[in-house]
Design a binder for these strands. Sequence first.
DNA 1: CGTTAATTTGAGACCATTCAATTTCGGTGG
DNA 2: CCACCGAAATTGAATGGTCTCAAATTAACG
Lengths: 241, 241
Amino acid sequence: MTESFPLGPLFRRWSRRLALSSDDKNAVASLEWTRRQFQRDAYLAREGEPTNICTLLIEGVAYRQKILSDGSRQIISFHIAGEFLDLQNCLLEVADHNVQALTRCNVAAVPKELLLEVMNARSAVGRAIWLDSLIDASVFREWVVNVGRRDAKQRIAHLLCELASRLKAAGLGEGPMFDFPLTQEHIGDATGLTAVHTNRTLQALRRAGLISLGASKLTVLDWDSLAQTGDFNERYLHHSV
Amino acid sequence: MTESFPLGPLFRRWSRRLALSSDDKNAVASLEWTRRQFQRDAYLAREGEPTNICTLLIEGVAYRQKILSDGSRQIISFHIAGEFLDLQNCLLEVADHNVQALTRCNVAAVPKELLLEVMNARSAVGRAIWLDSLIDASVFREWVVNVGRRDAKQRIAHLLCELASRLKAAGLGEGPMFDFPLTQEHIGDATGLTAVHTNRTLQALRRAGLISLGASKLTVLDWDSLAQTGDFNERYLHHSV
DNA sequence: CGTTAATTTGAGACCATTCAATTTCGGTGG
DNA sequence: CCACCGAAATTGAATGGTCTCAAATTAACG
């Protein structure tokens, strides 16, 4: 299914927010996409490298991160099927962060010049792609707030709410239960905490009956309490426009 | 001067990164810009409000922030003359954060639809504006890293490096000395620290001979040491493409 | 020159880190 | 199917960076 029409998740996501004609979709679909596979933990892009292509995630989970001079890592965002991993490549010549596969990843890449051409030729596509990058930025802003002003329990609750909300919007997951391949170290690196403290905080969330997490499955047992704990308001995700 | 040609700083900034024809500039300059003044601390935009216009900062310093449910504030970015404050308004219907004047601000606003039209009609303008929003996002990413993985001294050193670097690129400041209207509370809210700890950390930076700060003036006394202290690498600012 | 904002100082409490060591889990080969 | 392995999760105790809450001092402004 994803093999026969790998752009499905992208078009479904776009159509939630704006209207695209079939000509628009065809223009995107007929680009020269190059398919590639990446193993778990593999780097899809590295900071400092020149940018040539834009990458769409077809299957799997990936994340963006920066490594500091002392070796510590900060994760900047997580991405699921149907999302671009590096739209900024279109206009920036050098990558300013790393992109890494969290699970095995299946991607489709296109030369950035070709994507720019389609954006130019079909303004609806141009808007869809700009919108994607604007929503990325909105999520970054919320993450600044999350790591800047929330304590450990709030940060993790907020992150779990975001991921659950996005997975649900993408049609993934069954009810309150989601595939959840992140390790506690990923969660810690995304929230600015250590893996140890992440572990203790997750236990507190479990004890409070808010979530069940394990075996690569996340279940949100009490959405309202989890959202309240994490001070979560999904406005910044701009699920509809 | 800014009164006679208020778009000067914008065009100078754009021309550092890409080439715009005079037709491109004229198209932007002949938009129906509405000039407004805001007093210190005034809100230019509020989270939750519908978006109608895009705002260009002509003079002064402004910042974006979010207020949490417990009343604490996280500053998300600072902006100087020649920068847009809310480009995301073009495609997002509801503001997801607040914009506030740090000093008295002089702005020029334009209906978002008109800006979108120019972007569509003149692809170079479209790219300049998309590029602006992509660099905004790059700065947000770096701020996630800053508040997520650096300690107090590093965070503040990094913030001061960023501001000094951007002010210098904009042609503001004389050598290592810059107008610096931020209070310690602003610095704390931008770095995820309390004003008290910001104060103590600034004293440490002064004692170490890295900066001189006071009377609304920042002087970077030892750029290399300050940059090293803050783990600062200006790549993410994308000063040239 | 008075009044408010901003900065500075002190001491105690707390949240998160550090550094190990241990246990559990998921996958692999015998 | 069980033994084994490395990765991930868990636990403990001590340390430390940052916060909290005041109060005092200094600077900015009309």
